[in-house]
Design a protein around this nucleic acid. Structure first.
Lengths: 343, 343
DNA sequence: GTTAGCACTCAATCGCGAGGAGTGCTAACA
DNA sequence: TGTTAGCACTCCTCGCGATTGAGTGCTAAC
């Protein structure tokens, strides 16, 4: 059987209605709700077909129909077109941005959460494939060296390392020059063993310091592996009865708290290469088990090559996909514009 | 009426029993539970007294008694003695500590949460009254200067500032020396207008740069005003039915998510100067409205003068105060020891 | 092909009564 | 005078059956 135009309309009506109310929707409702001018009986026939085709389902025999995952998927696919709205408020909020990327991301998560009424997450740009821009060693105290590493996109990492051997200012200066001239513009992966050996050789008697510094650099980078993720609007899940029962809510909240699990989600979105960078996971499709009962909309934003992060919105399956996709796309371009202006 | 020894024993028995079960406790239970060898009738008389005195209350006429806030308060006060336990696991977890304060604090929050089964929060040390230890300016790109500010306790802050005027290496070096020689060891408050004017004068033609840098320093410090707070174990609240209903849970979770509100809690604990630095807020006593139905145990840890943070545990009123206070005290001394060793 | 009508299904809701935990009070006892 | 056994009473909890009502599938008529 094929989805003719009428079936499509009815399906959309069912889904849209369910999105609004969260209740199973019956044939009578559709009959009045749409402009099809069909009686409830006709709708019933069509709905029986749609159910057979797997787009909708009944929680129990004498209830209305609710969309199945397949139904949601259809809805999302047929609706994945551009949308421009709610730009204003965001622009405004972005104007009072801080230079601190972190603060800004937190604020973005919040804006998204209050606007969508869903839970949101946003990951800080990953430095992983990032290029080194600048390294600076300074002595802050006896035996303590401060190492500052700056990457493409001004991602800054600090590290304090203890050294056994005292360094005078001149040596420190030389080391700084050595490190910068040799490492600048390299990505983390390009700093391999041969490189390290060469550097150590050039450092002469301070080779062990170089070793320590490079370790610190590596550690600095690695510390970023379990990347920063900010969440907001967690409590929004209580707005949706189908997620708010104790068991589900508890699971979801701990999932959102465990950044480890969200990392999984971020990785997944990175791996899926697609035009717009927007992904929609419905129910079981999501890579994170704690979100089986939800839908997740993610977008990848890219600030420079290899420097990218993820925006995610987590809500009930009956989320307002249309709006959410619009918002997420918006946020994505905001972030990218912001970076370009900054540059 | 006075709390004689027998009443005290009965009150403690009631509270302890309620802590375990979460159910109102009746006279019969107490009669068997304690070693007082009194019949349930006698206990009933005593319980009636205790209720009249406000230590316990009945949810409804034919139910057992549960502790009132006053009852909890009494219990906590009579029990506020040292306790040493669960040191082992923490020690172990602390061994694999990172230099990154942030990572460590997050981990601590987690350890506390899994150990206590309550929600936990921990605030990063406040830099507010902190002394400057080191300032470093470096040029990272055309027109971009990286300012790194290190405070007592190795609290590091970065800031990238755009400058209109190009600086050569020598000038930068001079500026660095100037800033460090004049500002080191000063607290944020001590850098006043006169100071700034003097510095600008000495910087000569680069006075505007100095201005920008000091602005950046100020901003850097101010960004820390809404201080970092890490939470963990939020979903633990679902373990306690009296907190797990939708309304309460939602409120609590958003309170825990809104760091702003937790900041309030931190400030409160700072203002209450007390010997051990441990505070117990029961029910309405807490300064954060979202936690009216909970009890909150907080401890202040101090790493250096003016550099202090807060550990907090949020749970039901029937929390195991004994254990929690032990844990918190423990964590407090761990943190302080850790810092001393590090120094 | 569409629709009206009807019998049927089944979750949700309500009312009600039994059960039971716990109390307060009284009277008897040591 | 303090303690205790006994009893009537309260009131929450739980389970059960009846009721309700939304929604369906099917059939027959248009």
């Amino acid at each position: 059987m094929q989805l003719d135009e009428r079936k499509t309309k009815i399906l959309q009506a069912v889904i849209r209605n369910y999105l609004e109310t969260g209740e199973p929707v019956g044939s009578r409702t559709i009959s009045k709700y749409t402009d099809l001018n069909l009686s409830s009986a006709t709708i019933r026939n069509e709905m029986a077909d749609l159910e057979e085709m797997g787009y909708i389902l009944q929680p129990h025999t004498s209830a209305g129909r609710i969309p199945s995952d397949k139904g949601y998927r259809f809805y999302v696919d047929t609706m994945m077109e551009a949308r421009e709205r709610e730009v204003v408020e965001m622009k405004e909020l972005l104007l009072e941005r801080q230079d601190k990327m972190e603060q800004m991301l937190k604020q973005m998560a919040k804006v998204l959460a209050t606007n969508t009424q869903y839970a949101t997450m946003i990951s800080a740009p990953q430095i992983h494939h990032n290029k080194l821009k600048f390294i600076q060693l300074s002595r802050v105290a006896q035996g303590q060296i401060l190492a500052v590493v700056v990457g493409e996109g001004n991602v800054i990492k600090n590290n304090i390392l203890s050294v056994t051997q005292e360094l005078d200012d001149e040596t420190l200066l030389k080391l700084n020059m050595l490190l910068n001239t040799h490492l600048n513009g390299l990505s983390m992966e390009e700093i391999n063993l041969g490189m390290i050996a060469a550097l150590k050789a050039k450092a002469g008697i301070h080779s062990d310091i170089v070793g320590e510094v490079l370790d610190a650099v590596a550690e600095t980078i690695k510390a970023d592996e379990d990347l920063e993720i900010y969440t907001s609007g967690t409590n929004n899940i209580f707005r949706y009865p189908e997620l708010a029962d104790q068991e589900r809510a508890s699971r979801l909240i701990s999932t959102l708290e465990e950044k480890q699990q969200l990392t999984e989600l971020v990785r997944e979105t990175f791996s899926e290469e697609e035009g717009s960078g927007i992904q929609v996971y419905i129910g079981d499709e999501t890579p994170v088990s704690g979100m089986k009962d939800c839908s997740v909309v993610t977008a990848t934003y890219e600030l420079g090559e290899g420097v990218k992060g993820t925006i995610g919105i987590i809500g009930p399956k009956r989320m307002d996909y249309d709006k959410v996709i619009g918002m997420v796309r918006n946020m994505q371009s905001q972030l990218e514009d912001l970076y370009r202006d900054d540059k």
